[in-house]
Design a protein around this nucleic acid. Sequence first.
DNA 1: ATTTGATATGTTATATTATAACATATATGT
DNA 2: ACATATATGTTATAATATAACATATCAAAT
Lengths: 136, 136
Amino acid sequence: MTEHENKTTKALTKNQVMVLDVLSKSNAPLTAYGILDLLRDDGFRAPPQVYRALEKLCEFGMVHRLEGLNAFVACSHSHCQNGGLAAFAICEKCGEVREFTPAKMSNQLEEWANSKGFAAKKTTIELSGLCKACNQ
Amino acid sequence: MTEHENKTTKALTKNQVMVLDVLSKSNAPLTAYGILDLLRDDGFRAPPQVYRALEKLCEFGMVHRLEGLNAFVACSHSHCQNGGLAAFAICEKCGEVREFTPAKMSNQLEEWANSKGFAAKKTTIELSGLCKACNQ
DNA sequence: ATTTGATATGTTATATTATAACATATATGT
DNA sequence: ACATATATGTTATAATATAACATATCAAAT
Ligand SMILES: [Zn+2]
Ligand SMILES: [Zn+2]
Ligand SMILES: [Zn+2]
Ligand SMILES: [Zn+2]
């Protein structure tokens, strides 16, 4: 059994592992091009290699895309793999990202969606501001 | 008194009026470059003209940026001008955007932020999926 | 074991989105 | 009229993302 597995219990590919690895080790979100630069020595040469890995990792719920930053973070849990709504608090100063699971909000959004007949496939919740440490 | 005014009761500039106008008349979000194309005949020639107007209109709360689409919509209310949290349900098929105000969620996010000492400056809530009409 | 199809990877080129930098014009207060 | 701030125009470039095609690797099926 390999180290990383997705929900279908299929092992990640080489590139997926490398991308997940740099994201997991980073203490701030990384852009696709930032990841590319970090992986040049490992044979990455062009954006599609990164974007393709990111796309799959996002599908698997192992990585999240932060829309407000055009950047990516490893999931804080082992993996979210959809269904579970995730929210992110992003510090503008230090870059720290806290992922949390606003269960009640999830219900309320669902309630709203049901009442309007809207079938949500994806939900984005992002707070940007200052984390406790940076706000002193 | 001019037609459009922002919160400081200062009239919008010529370019701001034109950008707000095309957004108000559109029944779907527009990208900056889409707006540029629509305004070529009105003297717009380059992206900064659009982005500058959009930046101000967003500040004034008269336009919202949809992070998931890199696109912009006119505020459904007269203007939101921050403080009031706005959420968006975006139909992937027809492009329709419904802006709504999830008051309870707002409280819950605030609650979470307070408990963690996070000082949120901006909050993004976007649902993407299918609207009622498109989901038949 | 060989063929076949599917998936993953490499590579080049290009599309899309956004901003930097500088020049000119217009408005506003003294 | 002058000084100052704001708005606009313009060129160039940065940053983000995808299209298109070639090659390689993997996984059945024969
Ligand atoms: Zn997660
Ligand atoms: Zn911080
Ligand atoms: Zn609004
Ligand atoms: Zn629709």
